[in-house]
């Protein structure tokens, strides 16, 4: 028996919105500690990882670990029947569920849906706990804007960190450009830029993945970029009181 109730159903909708362009079918894992999801994008360049802790739910019960294979596209069709202010409850009765039930509750109506599940034998990747040599925290809409603007100039974006801050740069056929974001210690937490640089990095990534993933900036006003030279970058959106949504993106290595 599994039951998880989102106080803020809109949050769950934003999470699905953020990953729907990157992953098609996913295994949703539920156990006593909460819900998690890990899936590679179709080109196997990126890995999406979601972790939602049971304490963040209005109601949470999971007697036995469950794996529920679902199509993100079909999940979206069900969620489109809910309002952004609804409370959303996920529920299954059986140990090997073939469907996942949804209840959408608002002041004046209650809706029930069942999504058919699939059996997906997807390889799970072991993401090692890593000490990153550069960790940058910045406003998520600033990062989204820089990726979108520089992505118009070139499909690969360079990221260089130093004690002073983080520099994004592009060199394309039409020309080149760079944006340096400076550290600030403003008292407004959502506008703060912090850099912890033990070792500077200089990495290159396909910016299209950032642009696909940056829909997640609706989840948090800040984004955390963790980097080490020649390692995948991690973009992390902290989901207040619940957990986090991460994108691991493999770098482009110059031959």
């Amino acid at each position: 028996m599994f039951e998880a109730k989102f106080e803020d159903g809109g949050l769950f909708k934003k999470i699905v919105e953020a990953i729907k362009e990157l992953v098609k079918n996913v295994n949703l894992e539920a156990n006593g500690t909460g819900i998690s999801l890990q899936a590679m994008d179709t080109s196997h360049v990126a890995l999406v990882a979601l972790q939602l802790n049971e304490k963040g739910f209005k109601k949470y019960r999971c007697e036995k670990s469950l794996t529920m294979g679902l199509s993100i596209e079909n999940l979206q069709k069900i969620l489109k029947c809910s309002g952004n202010d609804d409370q959303i409850t996920l529920r299954t009765q059986d140990e090997e569920p073939t469907t996942l039930s949804f209840t959408f509750e608002s002041k004046n109506r209650i809706s029930e849906f069942q999504l058919n599940l699939m059996s997906l034998d997807q390889e799970q990747l072991g993401v090692p706990d890593t000490e990153y040599s550069s960790v940058v925290r910045m406003p998520s809409n600033e990062f989204t804007k820089i990726c979108r603007e520089l992505g118009n100039i070139n499909e690969a974006i360079g990221i260089e960190t130093s004690k002073e801050g983080i520099k994004f740069y592009v060199k394309g056929d039409i020309g080149e450009g760079q944006v340096s974001v400076k550290i600030n210690d403003t008292e407004k937490p959502e506008e703060r830029v912090e850099c912890e640089v033990d070792e500077p990095v200089n990495l290159s990534f396909a910016v299209r993945y950032f642009n696909l993933f940056n829909k997640a900036s609706a989840l948090s006003s800040q984004v955390i970029l963790s980097m080490s030279q020649d390692q995948p970058l991690v973009i992390e959106y902290i989901i207040e009181e619940m957990g986090s949504l991460k994108l691991y993106l493999a770098p482009k290595i110059n031959d």
Partner: peptide
């Protein structure tokens, strides 16, 4: 050259 994510993380 674009690397694959699985080349960094072992499948568990």
């Amino acid at each position: 050259m674009q690397k694959k994510i699985a080349s960094f993380f072992k499948s568990s």
